[in-house]
Design a protein around this nucleic acid. Structure first.
Lengths: 238, 238
DNA sequence: CGCGTGATTGACACGCTTCAACGTATGTGG
DNA sequence: CCACATACGTTGAAGCGTGTCAATCACGCG
């Protein structure tokens, strides 16, 4: 089933046919979630290691006062949850921005998978470390960037990641996020997102309508964003 | 050597004597770094998986304009680098706030270690996921918190983590950070850190002199910080 | 057609930054 | 032992980026 996962793993290592079959036969529990629903409930009991195979989802926390912070975006092939490998309950929820398909595996099965093949172990480690790397890059962004810079950085990263998995065409990517969603990600209000978007638009850098993002001047946008994709690049190993 | 690492691993799983010996014999390359120096060079070539066994260090990025963002703090037992498990070069540096001792292991050795024992695999996975969890908690903090709340949160987390490894006594922990360091962590200027510290101090919540942090009213501080240690708590497995 | 959700705009308020000055402690070389 | 340098902490005043509040607009849907 999860060919999206397999091709992601092969970003990091070369898999044998046996590796591929092993992944294919263990990630079984398939589930679909419609847009607007939660794939993982915040504070809900969530077991297993979960991968997203189709759709677009975001990891978030909601505070008592209703304010929300999005801490990650997930595209096909991304691991969205590490189940009871980690805590009993999920401390972050995951919501589906589009209809989403996920596959999961229980933790013991996951550990068997990674102990049976060093290639798989290495590949899954890479995937986790990549997420850590992305989260820390976001920290740099939130800590040092202006609203404009943060928004540009977000767009650059999503564009890069979507292109990497073959979902970008001529600078165009699908990014179905409201201005509120964007604000909840980069830590500013939806009102200010609106104004900041207008700046980027009127500078001729991009167009964005809440669904599709079209980048006209990638080089300049990356400059504004101080976006250097090194944190998303890895050497592939045997 | 790395008994700090072993006791950290045992936060997550019960290790066998063989597991302990395996860890003990593989993490060998011992290195010391004096305060103020970098344990890992930003953009430098850095191989191996590295654990800190003594001291206090921070992971950071410095931008062209000289501004710095600290993205993680490391205490004894923490993994501070995943070497070529990840990218060729480190995209974040790690600097020593106190004299620091680290042990490292080459990546192949690390993978052998984790494929040889499911307990060890599970424990190391937990350690990585815990770091991911912390990074995302920081994102929530930076995205939603005021200066006061962020500073309080930082203090609460460091206190919790230090207490966990037996380095807190009666609300007192060693935290040798300048006001600039604090600001570079929570994304505000050193000037504003100063003012914010005064608020917390004059509210009778804590005292801090750049070296020692003494918390007088943990409950109220956590309330201000909206600090819930759940993201640092894990169930221990056989 | 009427409603709800999201986008847009304007006016005003405020938290934090910036800049600059000054204090204090520590260390160093003459 | 003093002169000086350096690093960090503290304080004040002014400016700016972003938040807040509120109104209006645009669109899709039942």
């Amino acid at each position: 089933m999860p060919k999206e996962l397999i091709s992601r793993l092969e970003k990091f290592v070369t898999l044998t046919e046996a590796d591929r079959r092993a992944v294919d036969s263990t990630f079984r529990h398939r589930r679909t979630t419609s847009a607007g629903r939660d794939v993982i409930q915040e504070l809900g009991h969530a077991d297993g290691v979960v991968v997203i195979t189709e759709g677009f989802a975001g990891q978030f926390r909601v505070r008592d006062d209703g304010r929300r912070q999005i801490v990650a975006f997930f595209h096909p092939g991304d691991l969205i949850h590490f189940g009871s490998l980690a805590a009993e309950n999920a401390v972050f929820g995951v919501t589906a921005f589009t209809p989403t398909v996920t596959s999961s595996i229980d933790v013991d099965g996951f550990l068997s998978l990674t102990t049976s093949s060093q290639s798989l172990a290495r590949a899954f480690w890479h995937m986790a470390i990549e997420q850590l790397s992305i989260a820390r890059e976001w920290l740099v962004d939130l800590g040092l960037g202006s609203a404009q810079q943060r928004l540009a950085h977000l767009f650059c990263e999503q564009h890069y990641r979507l292109e990497e998995i073959g979902r970008a065409a001529a600078g165009m990517v699908r990014l179905p996020l409201s201005q509120r969603d964007l604000g909840d990600t980069i830590g500013i209000t939806n009102v200010h997102v609106n104004r900041t978007l207008q700046e980027l638009r009127s500078a001729g850098l991009l167009s964005f309508d809440g669904i599709d993002l079209q980048i006209f001047d990638l080089k300049k946008l990356r400059q504004i964003a101080k976006f250097d994709p090194q944190y998303l690049q890895w050497r592939k190993l045997g």
